[in-house]
Design a binder for these strands. Structure first.
Lengths: 252, 252
DNA sequence: CGCAGATTTGAGCGTATTCAAGTGACGTGG
DNA sequence: CCACGTCACTTGAATACGCTCAAATCTGCG
């Protein structure tokens, strides 16, 4: 009973949502926000760790906004190998890359107890037709997604393991800060394996780099509890090598 | 005189453009297409090789549609190192990732004599407000861009040099085919260096892999004239190793 | 023709991988 | 309560792939 009370508070309207300032309703007036609120389907229960929000290949109908917790997007390639293409933190939108092809390109899995707002895309578009600022915000959200991907691409094409991880932590910090959490102190929602899969590194490499970063006193890490001790140094490490990359050890 | 005649033909309306079926006006009726046509600014002269379409940091006002030729997007990082984040072929849209931040994230440079349609984004949005199918197409274009980027990310996180280049050629082929060119025979618009920069490989590695692919009889390559001889084999090579990646030789 | 840029080829090396073993945390069941 | 299995993570050793450096060759173009 008390839990459901809490949760109904949690799932209040956009007007009471602490993330509304970085979500789609960002620039809406009260009345518009009410309209927007009306099309949102709120999930009855939060998802638990490992639960699927959507499945690869499933037809696209909804965009999701992360309300709490976090998610990873896993793409299974032709050989059945997993590949983590994206992490989603509170306030971020899931599913925008599916508009074109009409189906979700991968599984989206909760990394812990997480909740989302479910937004039927068709209705979102109908509403966006009438509300220019909502339309703007939708464009911007999609565009931002592209931009983040381009960053990751640059990271992957020309950075060493250390740089990748430094960049990754800085990126996570920034994104957490946007949602009102601390920049320098947060809990990593994902495993080392997940990080490796996302950054194109073996988990052993991730582990080794993390060890090195701790030895250097740049971060402290207990389990998944991360503290960024020297932001400037982490930043320096994230862009240490100006150019290309270097070979690739072995291949499995 | 004769040139300008030719060019004015080249720059005819969307209705006469061979690419309209894969560009924004895709689903528009005659009248809508005329409206759309009206907001497009056509460049007076095609760009020559090396000419900038837009500059890094410049404020975003226009989306561009490639009409002929091709472009590369170069991003200069903090250290001034170049990084090719994207190639644009005929029928593709340039600039969509700039909507959010409001400025172009990199230079877009013509890879040969190329022409574009210049579409003021503000006006495009105004028009999209009234024309649902144009809006849909805009969403889809942006979404497709994200999707392509995700593909590249997967390529970069877990593929060997050979796989990357095989994937890259297959991707180029598909994109050329969409614009009405041959899938198995086209001219590479970019240099080996450009390919390397885009795929996170040293140009020497690109060169070596190309040599190997030719020896194996998978492709034939004279200068930049590429012929895909065995598509199935190229496809097989593009997904040879199911998983991770491998080290990174040296780091400059 | 001759230069500049693009590409090819060779030798040696370094980073990150793979394989392998070992530690630690956690929850289950005897 | 402790043995045990599982899972995430750490650490070590050997290896491989692609990088860097260097020089040669090819190409396009004035």
């Amino acid at each position: 009973m008390s839990i459901s009370m809490l949760e109904s508070q949690c799932w209040g309207s956009c007007q009471t949502c602490s993330l509304s300032s970085l979500c789609l309703p960002l620039a809406l007036c009260i009345n518009e926000m009410k309209e927007f609120d009306a099309i949102i389907t709120r999930r009855r229960a939060p998802l638990v760790r490992g639960e699927n929000l959507c499945r690869q290949g499933e037809s696209f109908t909804n965009v999701f906004a992360v309300r709490s917790g976090s998610f990873k997007q896993i793409v299974l390639d032709e050989e059945g190998e997993e590949q983590i293409s994206h992490f989603y933190l509170p306030g971020e939108l899931i599913g925008l890359e599916s508009i074109d092809e009409g189906h979700y390109p991968g599984f989206v899995v909760a990394l812990g107890r997480s909740s989302v707002c479910e937004i039927p895309f068709q209705q979102l578009d109908t509403l966006a037709e009438r509300i220019p600022s909502l339309r703007q915000q939708l464009y911007r959200s999609i565009s931002r997604g592209m931009n983040e991907d381009r960053h990751l691409i640059r990271l992957l094409t020309c950075k060493s393991a250390e740089e990748r991880i430094a960049s990754f932590f800085l990126d996570l910090g920034r994104r957490f800060r946007r949602s009102g959490f601390a920049f320098e102190h947060f809990r990593l929602p994902m495993s080392r394996t997940d990080i490796g899969s996302h950054l194109g590194l073996a988990l052993e490499t991730v582990s080794r780099v993390l060890g090195r970063l701790q030895q250097q006193g740049v971060i402290s890490l207990h389990g998944r509890e991360l503290q960024i001790l020297r932001t400037d140094e982490l930043y320096r490490l994230s862009e240490k090598y100006p150019s290309h990359a270097g070979g690739m050890g072995a291949l499995r």
